[in-house]
C-alpha cells in the first residue's frame, strides 16, 4: 500500500462536543468517587481519541482497561508509597537523621521509577493499541532502562547541563529500540547534533528554550522508523506557542473547567502534526509475539505514568 503524498497518513476525526460529553461525565464521576474513577475516565478518553484517529485506511483501537490502570496504581501504592510513607513517618519519630536517610533513599527510588515509568508507559500504550487487529509491545521489562535513565540523566546534568540534549536523545532512542509493532522493531536515530546549537542559545536568551523544545520534539520523532515507515513531526515553535496560549485562554475563560479539554487539544495537535512516509505491507504485518498477560492485568505491566 503506497502513501498518498498530498494527505497526511494520520487523520483526526474527533470533535470537541463528543469529547465534552465524555470528559464532563468523567469529571463528575471522578469527583463523587473521591478520585477513584480517574482510571476508568482515562480509559474512556483514550478509547475515544484512539477511535477517532485514522492511520492510512483504518482507525486505531484502544483496548486498555480502567481496571488495569487501577491495579497498576494499587501495586505502586502498596509496593512503594504506603511502605515508604510509614517508614518515613516512623523515621521522623525516631530522629531527623533517620528521616533524612529514608527520604534520600525514597528520592533515589522515585528517580528510578520515573525512568522505568517513562518506558513502561510507551510499552503499555503500544501493547494496548491495535491497528488492523495488530498490536505493539516489547518483551523487555525495562528494569535496566530504569538504571540507565538514572545514570544518563545525571551525566546530562553534570557539565552545567550541557549534555542534556545528548541524554534526552540517547534515552529516547533506547526506549524506542526496545519496542515493536507487529513483527517489526522500531528504530530510533535521534541525534543531539541538530538541537545542540539551539540549546546553547537558550542559555544566552531564555525564549530559545521554546525553540529548542519544539525542535527537540521534531528531532525525536523524525528519527523514528518502523520497517519501511518513516515518521515526521511538523510542529514549529509558533505552533506550540499558539497551542499553549489558547490552552491558557480556555482554562482561564472557563474558570478551570476547560482543563478537561487539554488532553483532547494536545492529542489533536500531535496527530495533526504527525506524518508518516513509506509503505505498509499488510500481508507481512503479522501479530506481535511479545509477552502479554491474558487479561492485561499483569502486575507492573499496567502502571501508567498517571500512577506516579
Amino acid at each position: 500500500m503506497t502513501e498518498d503524498t498530498k494527505k497526511s497518513a494520520f487523520q483526526f476525526h474527533g470533535n470537541w462536543v463528543d469529547f465534552a460529553k465524555i470528559a464532563l461525565v468523567n469529571l463528575l464521576l471522578t469527583i463523587i468517587t473521591l478520585g477513584f474513577y480517574r482510571f476508568w475516565a482515562t480509559t474512556r478518553e483514550r478509547e475515544y481519541l484512539w477511535s477517532q484517529t485514522q492511520f492510512i485506511d483504518e482507525r486505531f483501537e484502544w483496548v486498555g482497561t480502567g481496571k488495569e490502570l487501577f491495579i497498576g496504581f494499587i501495586i505502586i501504592a502498596f509496593l512503594f508509597l504506603i511502605p515508604f510513607s510509614l517508614l518515613y513517618f516512623f523515621a521522623t519519630i525516631i530522629n531527623p537523621l533517620a528521616a533524612g536517610i529514608v527520604y534520600i533513599i525514597g528520592l533515589l527510588f522515585v528517580f528510578y521509577f520515573v525512568g522505568l515509568a517513562k518506558y513502561r508507559m510507551l510499552r503499555y500504550r503500544l501493547s494496548r493499541t491495535y491497528w488492523h487487529g495488530i498490536r505493539g509491545g516489547s518483551d523487555d521489562k525495562g528494569f535496566r532502562f530504569g538504571l540507565t535513565y538514572m545514570i544518563k540523566t545525571t551525566l546530562g546534568f553534570l557539565p552545567l547541563g550541557l549534555a542534556n540534549p545528548w541524554a534526552t536523545c540517547e534515552l529516547w532512542n533506547e526506549r524506542w529500540e526496545k519496542l515493536s509493532f507487529g513483527p517489526n522493531d522500531f528504530q530510533s536515530h535521534a541525534s543531539y547534533n541538530s538541537v545542540f546549537g539551539t540549546y546553547l542559545l537558550s542559555y544566552i536568551f531564555f525564549p530559545f528554550t521554546w525553540v529548542y523544545q519544539a525542535r527537540l520534539r521534531r528531532t525525536l520523532i523524525d528519527g523514528l522508523r518502523l520497517e519501511k515507515l518513516e515518521f515526521a513531526f511538523t510542529a514549529s515553535t509558533f505552533d506550540w506557542i499558539g497551542l499553549i496560549i489558547v490552552d491558557v485562554l480556555i482554562v482561564l475563560g472557563t474558570l478551570g473547567i476547560g482543563l478537561i479539554f487539554i488532553p483532547y487539544r494536545h492529542w489533536q495537535f500531535y496527530i495533526n502534526h504527525l506524518e508518516a512516509y513509506g509503505e505498509v505491507n499488510l500481508d507481512a504485518l503479522t501479530q506481535s509475539q511479545t509477552a502479554k498477560e491474558k487479561h492485561g492485568e499483569g502486575l507492573l505491566d499496567a502502571f501508567d505514568v498517571g500512577a506516579i
Binding site: 483504518e58 495488530i134 499488510l282
Partner: peptide, 10 residues
C-alpha cells in the same frame, strides 16, 4: 474481520 494473525482486512 481481522483474524489477528496478519493485518489483512477480510
Amino acid at each position: 474481520h481481522f483474524d489477528g494473525k496478519t493485518a489483512v482486512r477480510r
